[in-house]
């Protein structure tokens, strides 16, 4: 396995663990006075997920697979 693939796999697993946010389970506080912490955290999580995938695409794009699909060897 390539080093970059391994790093992305580890980050992916860490994101999976962070999704469980056990520390927010009982927290009824509001962020910006209208959004419950449990919702604000996961909304921010969505943005982090998008950022993570943007980095993956930039650094681990399968260029050769695309060439192969188009008929190259």
């Amino acid at each position: 396995m390539k080093k970059s693939t391994l790093i992305f796999l580890i980050v992916f697993i860490v994101l999976g663990v962070l999704h469980q946010d056990v520390w927010n389970w009982d927290n009824a506080n509001l962020v910006f006075g209208f959004m419950p912490v449990g919702l604000a955290y996961h909304a921010a999580y969505s943005l982090v997920a998008a950022t993570f995938w943007a980095v993956v695409l930039r650094l681990a794009w399968p260029h050769k697979l695309e060439e192969w699909a188009d008929g190259g060897d």
Binding site: G38, Y41, H42, Y45, S46
Partner: peptide
């Protein structure tokens, strides 16, 4: 409030 984490943020990832 758990609905978002249950179904949406996990789907995003």
């Amino acid at each position: 409030v758990g609905t978002y984490g249950l179904m949406a943020s996990s789907s995003g990832l």
